[in-house]
């Protein structure tokens, strides 16, 4: 009976974590797009992005711990941190493990952003484009009801949401660049090292 509980807890928390992290990615993209409505100021988007991210790793932690403890999967702690060390569906679990590692980097750098500086933080934050798809693939391959219709529906909605907002972000970026005065586009202010050093 308790095995069932662990199994359900692991699947449930995994799904919730996936949905929440999809929301996190969407909120992050909406921050860049500068989306706002009367009653939904911009700071709400970025603050939700951060808070939902923290919430999602709570469920992620539950998902990992219950998966380790679940006797059916026989995952040891090692398998949860080392990719391909699992005997149960090694590749599927490895996708999740890598996703978690990237997520830890994202969270750690974000919490320490003031200390590590904006440039480093931004470089690491690009890993989000790796962490999220890996989580989706892990969801599609690792669980026994991975291809159940309701699960596919949830995954489909997550992918559609992130894909849609990503497309919006790319198009908004292009529009913003096009609207910048010509001085930015044609900036010849940056000198090139070739413009002359003589001894």
């Amino acid at each position: 009976m308790s095995e069932q509980v662990l199994w359900f807890a692991s699947r449930g928390s995994g799904i919730v974590s996936l949905v929440l992290s999809s929301a996190v990615v969407c909120l992050g993209l909406l921050t860049v797009v500068r989306w706002q409505r009367p009653g939904w100021p911009r700071f709400l988007t970025v603050e939700l992005h951060r808070r939902v991210a923290l919430l999602s790793i709570v469920f992620l932690a539950i998902h990992i711990v219950t998966a380790i403890l679940d006797p059916y999967t026989a995952l040891g702690v090692l398998a949860a941190v080392v990719p391909l060390a699992s005997s149960y569906r090694p590749v599927a679990v490895a996708l999740g493990v890598i996703s978690v590692d990237l997520t830890i980097a994202l969270i750690a750098t974000s919490l320490l952003r003031e200390r590590i500086g904006q440039r480093t933080w931004r470089a690491v934050h690009w890993l989000a484009y790796g962490a999220w798809p890996l989580a989706v693939l892990h969801g599609l391959t690792a669980g026994t009801d991975a291809v159940a219709p309701w699960m596919l529906a949830i995954e489909g909605l997550c992918v559609l949401a992130v894909g849609g907002v990503l497309a919006w972000r790319i198009s908004a970026g292009r529009q913003r660049r096009a609207a910048l005065p010509a001085v930015v586009a044609a900036s010849s202010i940056v000198g090139s090292p070739a413009s002359g050093r003589t001894r």
Binding site: I189, V190, G191, R197, T198
Partner: peptide, 12 residues
């Protein structure tokens, strides 16, 4: 003593 050619811009 080295000579560096500055870019031909106002802010240079």
């Amino acid at each position: 003593i080295s000579l560096v050619a500055a870019p031909p811009t106002y802010v240079a």
